[in-house]
């Protein structure tokens, strides 16, 4: 290569890198979500591997099938990338969101997303809207509210309302040693959902929940949440990593279906009020 040509090529490459703010745009997979095989799964949203994993631009639709319906569209697209190690599958979801919503409260809702897969891989797939009777779907749900909690925000009114004044909590009486088993037990009794072992109530170590459903309105907690994840808000949008086991029957080199949902907290989207996709083909890469 002549020196003059080398200088020109270097300038073009530099300009391309700057245009992408230092990040290389991944290739696009229009027709399906391609789960690329990797020996080890990426553990962060910033992992370099995402620069070469194909991205599927998933079009989001209104959930307007069952009440309460969402009748005004919000988030139009979510970009999906996927990696599998043969046992687990990781999804990276990226979408634009002008507002960071991670505070719970009356009429306050968190940004959130979810991935859904058929619980059993078969030709006859469940209905894309939360599955159907006898055809269970598995869902991994991430919430910005959970993420803030995992990131260190205390489950305390002062974390939400710094100037709040509280006279007394019975379970924090001076006679009770803070953190002692009797004190913890008493505190649990004053948090009804926690007393009922509802995973909504925390304490939580991961910002995700594993859920099962057999149709709209049937969502329930899986026996245990084994998935993990993390979300990061920057540049006017969310990037969320969800890592979950491959569902029953899904094999490396095989195919199944996957669906996604996104909730925009500032528009009071919660539960059935969401933007969602139909089933999207998911191809699982293998070591070969």
């Amino acid at each position: 290569m002549k020196p003059r040509h080398f200088i020109f090529l270097a300038a073009v490459l530099s300009a391309s890198a700057l245009a992408g703010c230092g990040k290389k745009e991944p290739p696009v997979s229009e027709a399906e979500v391609k789960a690329v095989f990797e020996k080890s799964l990426p553990s962060t949203v910033d992992d370099k591997v995402w620069e070469r994993v194909p991205a599927h631009p998933a079009k989001l639709l209104l959930q307007d099938m069952v009440e309460p319906r969402l009748l005004q569209a919000s988030t139009p697209f979510v970009r999906v990338q996927s990696v599998t190690d043969g046992r687990k599958v990781a999804f990276l979801l990226t979408w634009k969101d002008a507002t960071l919503d991670d505070v719970p409260g009356p009429a306050l809702f968190g940004d959130a997303c979810a991935v859904q897969l058929p619980a059993t891989t078969a030709a006859d797939v469940p209905a894309p809207q939360m599955g159907e009777d006898g055809k269970t779907v598995e869902i991994t749900y991430w919430s910005a509210i959970f993420q803030a909690s995992v990131n260190g925000r205390k489950d305390d009114i002062h974390a939400l309302y710094p100037r709040a004044a509280v006279d007394h909590y019975p379970f924090e009486a001076p006679s009770l040693k803070a953190g002692s088993p009797p004190q913890q037990e008493m505190a649990k009794r004053y948090a009804p959902a926690r007393g009922a072992e509802n995973p909504m109530a925390g304490p939580r170590t991961v910002p995700v929940q594993d859920l099962l459903a057999d149709g709209p309105g049937t969502i329930r907690f899986a026996e245990k949440t084994v998935s993990s994840g993390s979300g990061k808000y920057s540049g006017g949008g969310w990037t969320v990593l969800l890592v979950r086991p491959l569902p029953n029957g899904a094999q490396p080199g095989g195919r199944t279906q996957v669906a996604f949902a996104v909730w925009e907290g500032s528009r009071q989207e919660v539960g059935a009020r969401k933007m969602r996709t139909a089933w999207i083909p998911l191809s699982l890469g293998s070591a070969q």
Partner: peptide
């Protein structure tokens, strides 16, 4: 949804338990 629906506003959201 219950907080929205109850006309008497006698259901309340607990931000610490998420229910």
């Amino acid at each position: 949804e219950c907080v929205k629906a109850c006309p008497y506003k006698k259901t309340f959201f607990n931000a610490m338990t998420g229910t």
